[in-house]
Design a protein around this nucleic acid. Structure first.
Length: 259
DNA sequence: TTGCATGTTCCGGA
DNA sequence: GTCCGGAACATGCA
């Protein structure tokens, strides 16, 4: 699941239910999910403290708890849920924050991803590992500046979290399809006008994904059709192409997005 | 049984 | 230093 819109949805789950709640204790069902910390250190940092207003940077959810920050990454199959106290555990529940009003559950089937702990605001950047600016609030000028130093394919650039944070495989394909840019295009070959179009597409795709809390399966989205066996372009009806680009399965329209 | 999956990291090579 | 491909990580599903 988790790309920027999904994590934004998890942020809302936390904001709507857990903010102001005091953490009685943390249940670490799978300590493998904890990276750079231990169940004990996590407990000592958060027990008795209250959740503050959560933030998101790229695919990371940042939950203030007292002075500390609990950092959550969801890998490919993670999610966050608010459940009633004493609710039966799901087999993939990994870490649970117990509060009086309910329980905040970090679930993750494949166990990619991590929960990290920053002792204060300053440690957040180090723990999340040098992320670029969040893709949701990236000005046109900043977008141009980022691409200016880039040489590889545009698909690789958009997915590079150190360049800009939040875009994954699905969202990147949507953006390229909307902007009518072939995923293999080397960044230096992109005209200024096409870079503008890409920036417009980044903004539009994110804006339209946020309310859903996922990459939409709407009428004019590749995501709706990309997994079909005879997938066709929602715009022109051409047969969609699939191939590995920048290490991931890219999906694009050979007619709308000519090389 | 094999291949693939919405993520990240590490390694070798160009 | 940059960039890419491939493998690895862990798990479930078609």
């Amino acid at each position: 699941m988790p790309e920027l819109p999904d994590v934004e949805g998890f942020r809302r789950v936390l904001a709507a239910n857990a903010v102001g709640e005091r953490i009685a204790s943390v249940e670490v069902l799978d300590r493998y999910m904890l990276k750079g910390t231990t169940p004990r250190a996590l407990g000592e940092a958060v027990n008795g403290e209250r959740f503050g207003e959560p933030e998101r940077h790229g695919k990371w959810l940042i939950a203030p708890v007292g002075k500390a920050r609990v950092l959550m990454h969801f890998g490919m199959t993670g999610l966050l849920e608010w459940v009633r106290r004493g609710e039966r555990r799901h087999p993939h529940d990994r870490v649970v924050f117990l509060c009086a009003a309910g329980e905040l559950v970090y679930r993750n089937m494949r166990r990619f991803g991590a929960i990290r702990l920053a002792r204060d605001e300053r440690e957040v950047g180090r723990e999340t590992g040098g992320l670029g600016p969040d893709a949701q609030q990236l000005s046109r000028d900043d977008f141009h500046a980022l691409l200016a130093k880039r040489r590889g394919s545009i698909k690789a650039a958009l997915m590079d979290q150190r360049l800009l944070a939040g875009l994954g495989n699905l969202l990147t394909d949507e953006i390229l399809w909307r902007a009518r840019v072939n995923p293999r295009t080397p960044v230096p070959e992109l005209s200024s006008r096409r870079r503008d179009r890409l920036h417009d597409a980044v903004e539009a795709c994110i804006r339209e994904s946020i309310p859903t809390g996922r990459v939409p399966h709407g009428r004019d989205w590749l995501t709706r059709v990309r997994d079909e066996r005879d997938a066709r372009c929602p715009r022109c009806g051409s047969r969609l192409r699939k191939a590995t680009v920048a290490g991931r399965t890219a999906c694009w329209c050979p007619r709308c997005q000519r090389a």
